[in-house]
């Protein structure tokens, strides 16, 4: 595989009696869209947590752009260019949408002057443009707490994108989004990711979304990858159809 930007190699992590990662390995090439699918408890979110520094593996390593990031803090990993969004959106609920993005912008630019109001950041327009790109410009001045879950999900992703990551992990980007809106959300996201040449790995339960937006699928079971391939190969795989998708052959 050429142009590998992230390589997770043989990650192991046990919580008490649960083997959450059991030899999890994945190589991610630049500009890929990898969907991670699998039953609940298969270790999908644990894998994201291991790659983004939230959890440390008991063995194995994660290399990002040639640098070992296995033991680095989430802050350090984020600064190297790995962004993430969460299954439950992690936002500053009592701030406005634009303030959430502007804080991300300030973090990216290292703008910490006590005399610079966050609202007057010289590159604030860039964040408004990002909001427009994800179709949320109208909500910019609204308090996040007042917004529905589906919208928060998109804002969570926009905050991660505001950091201009080279690679973004998204944990169930369409959960909480209505079935009529999820393709619209994914179309928007794909457009932004393409425009910014951002590589993406996302956990997803909706196979229609997987089929339409991933160019590679990794099937997770028991804390590791059981199968991987193109969406066509995976979604027609008899074992995957039976054990993961829940459709008999």
């Amino acid at each position: 595989m050429s142009g590998v930007i992230l390589e997770a190699d043989d990650l192991h992590l046990r919580f008490g009696g649960v083997q959450a990662a059991n030899g999890a390995s994945l190589k991610v090439a630049a500009n890929e869209r990898i969907a991670i699918i699998g039953p609940n408890g298969a270790g999908k979110t644990t894998f994201i947590n291991l790659c983004t520094g939230y959890l440390k593996p008991q063995s194995g390593r994660v290399v990002f752009n040639g640098q070992d990031v296995t033991r680095l803090s989430p802050q350090a990993i984020t600064r190297l260019g790995i962004g993430r969004s969460f299954q439950i959106p992690q936002l500053f609920l009592d701030n406005t949408v634009i303030e959430n993005l502007l804080l991300a912008l300030s973090a990216r630019e290292g703008s910490w002057s006590p005399f610079l109001a966050v609202q007057r950041h010289p590159k604030a327009e860039e964040m408004w443009a990002l909001l427009e790109m994800v179709g949320l410009k109208e909500t910019g001045n609204r308090i996040v707490r007042e917004l529905p879950e589906g919208m928060r999900k998109l804002i969570d992703i926009a905050v991660a994108l505001a950091l201009e990551p080279k690679l973004i992990f998204m944990d169930e980007p369409t959960s909480g989004v209505s079935s009529t809106e999820k393709f619209q959300v994914m179309d928007t996201l794909t457009r932004v990711l393409d425009a910014r040449a951002t590589t993406a790995v996302f956990v997803e339960h909706d196979m229609d979304v997987v089929a339409r937006y991933a160019n590679r699928v990794a099937v997770w079971t028991g804390g590791r990858i059981a199968h991987q391939g193109t969406p066509e190969e995976i979604l027609s795989h008899p074992e995957v159809r039976e054990t993961v998708i829940g459709v008999g052959v």
């Binding site: 350090a76 984020t78 936002l91 973090a107 966050v118 950091l163």
Partner: peptide, 21 residues
């Protein structure tokens, strides 16, 4: 300022603050 907003963020969501680097 961004520092003041980051300070408020400790109260509202320390996890996201860490994932802003």
């Amino acid at each position: 300022s961004p520092g003041g907003k980051a300070l408020e963020a400790i109260k509202s969501n320390e996890t996201r603050l860490e994932y802003l680097g």
